[in-house]
Write a protein that binds this DNA or RNA. Structure first.
Lengths: 342, 342
DNA sequence: CTGAAAGCGCTTACAG
DNA sequence: CTGAAAGCGCTTACAG
């Protein structure tokens, strides 16, 4: 820090000609302070443009008004929409949010938890899929454990295999199964799935739900019918290109996220393949923009903003000692124009 | 904070049987500490899962590794994309970002600056349009002034009339003018504009640029040709509905942001009006998803991620004493399928 | 290279 | 109602 030093409580106290304690009390309103002195303190603070030092406050034992939120990528509409819910609840509770983007690097996730721990964030929210990776899970737990022991709250959105913390669980598996059944009802029998990396629990859950429902109807989804690609718009685009190049007899494609479906839709258009006339397409999440696509995308709707709101509420409501809470969120199939009835 | 108290440096020092000073030095690596003692300290810290208290560090005069970022709405693709650039640079510099969403409430913007000031964030970034409002500007300046005096860095993206701080300026005016000329070249003569609230500087700049370029070509844009609406997808949707209801002879519509254009596109589709066969449509920003729309949207491309990166870089590179820096960013017209040649 | 001690800016019992 | 003083958990001259 360069420049003139900060104005401190001491400056305010001196200007108001009161003790440090009185200045502190007057500013915090809590304990009673005589009106004369209080006004003098307030006036002095105003005049000096005083702002309390949050670090000193936190150290001295007052409240930590910050929470940490870790997501994979803020610019992904899925996270951006969840983040909106998080920010709203945070704002309502006068909390400051420290938001970190891991850019899907598991190591960064752990590094950020560590930083947030150092900041003594009162809560840490992990938004987004966990990784199916034992070593990573252990390392994450090793950071989270002492954090919680020190009184920190932890809440996650999506499934993290071995983390015993409060969580908001979108019903990925059931939603994908419902989608499969809806598509079967429309007459589809030959499917392909555009999937993200299988180390992501979300991918695994959706894929399993979809596959199992098909199996229940006597339809097998071969490994070959699942194209694994990046968990992004470009990943979906590439996967769809690959699928179309193979020229298979697929009538319906399920992209495990809307973002991938968006890329897939454009890939189809570029290849001169009409959706849904030549091939049907469905996604998952119901991010805001999918109803503005042409055709509007059939998908499994998750109440994204609520996911964020709920996670934040879990983190705010202390839950010491009790066992971890789980808030399940519904996943509802929304049929739009991107799927055809056969 | 409930639960067991945090592990402190003192615990580490005791465990390692060294002084507080030595433990501190060993952990920070800076000053030299004998290898034996250093190893003992590191082992103790590891064993106790020690994490330094960032508040104590900040108070004691070490570095503040946090920066504050204030935007209107994280879930808006425009901000989300800019935020991506911000997060990347922050990550590269081991900075933690405190992100606040004002939800377009000017008062909240000021309140957040105040909170960030209290946190002693080393820099504050204001992302997004300023408001054309004298009282608000004064109040904002009243927070920012003492912050900067105390050594805080400030950088903004977009124009803020009276804030004399470092800024990243997308060329809204010139970009809109270029767009107007491109549309004129395609043969359009009757235009309408779907605008956001005029108290936003971004709206004013784009509108003025567009209008002036038309005027230069001898075409007047009547007040009546400008429909003011919300700065959102739904705002664009409503504005387009209104325009179509008026059944005017407009051949081309300019929505001042892509997000509004997306809503407008759907409104047209719902009304059975074909874009671009019946009416042409253009946006501004080039958020990622617009190339995936049908038709792909003609727009004015802003290097959004770079906007965020540059702002963060300005904030990181100290600029004490020198006058405020301005980084201009190009705005390039990208013609896609949503506009027809007449 | 190592340690004792002051100080960062607050809050909060503890007295009065 | 008000004040003197201890303490939060670190860092960093200052001595040795």
């Amino acid at each position: 820090m360069t420049g003139r030093p900060h104005v401190t409580l001491e400056d305010v106290a001196r200007t108001a000609q009161v003790s440090l304690a009185t200045a502190s009390r007057a500013l915090n309103g809590a304990t009673s302070v005589g009106p004369t002195l209080r006004d003098r303190v307030l006036a002095a603070a105003e005049e000096l443009a005083y702002t309390p030092n949050a670090h000193a406050r936190a150290l001295a034992g007052s409240s930590h008004q910050t929470v940490g939120v870790i997501c994979h990528d803020v610019s992904d509409p899925y996270f951006a929409t969840i983040a909106r819910g998080v920010m709203r609840v945070a704002g309502e509770n006068d909390l400051l949010v420290m938001l970190a983007s891991t850019f899907r690097d598991p190591q960064k996730e752990i590094a950020y938890v560590s930083m947030l721990r150092a900041q003594r964030a009162s809560a840490i929210l992990l938004i987004g899929s966990g990784f199916e990776d034992r070593a990573w899970e252990r390392a994450l737990a090793a950071e989270l454990e002492p954090y919680r022991r020190g009184g920190g709250q932890v809440a996650v959105v999506s499934r993290h295999r071995s983390l015993r913390v409060d969580s908001v669980q979108p019903d990925n598996r059931a939603g994908a199964a419902d989608l499969a059944r809806a598509l079967l009802d429309l007459g589809h029998r030959r499917f392909a799935v555009l999937a993200g990396p299988r180390r992501l629990t979300t991918v695994v859950d959706r894929l399993d739900g979809f596959r199992d429902a098909l199996a229940d109807a006597g339809i097998a989804l071969a490994d070959d019918d699942v194209i694994e690609s990046g968990f992004t718009r470009d990943g979906g685009h590439a996967a769809m290109r690959e699928l179309l190049a193979r020229r298979r007899d697929v009538t319906c494609v399920f992209a495990v996220t809307d973002v991938m479906a968006i890329g897939a839709l454009t890939a189809a258009r570029e290849a001169g393949v009409s959706v849904p006339d030549d091939i049907s397409l469905a996604g998952f999440d119901d991010i805001p923009v999918v109803r503005d696509l042409t055709p509007a995308l059939t998908t499994v709707a998750l109440p994204l903003e609520q996911l964020g709101e709920q996670a934040m509420r879990l983190a705010i409501r202390d839950n010491r000692g009790k066992r971890s809470r789980v808030v399940r969120m519904p996943a509802d199939v929304v049929v739009r124009d991107s799927v055809a009835r056969l």
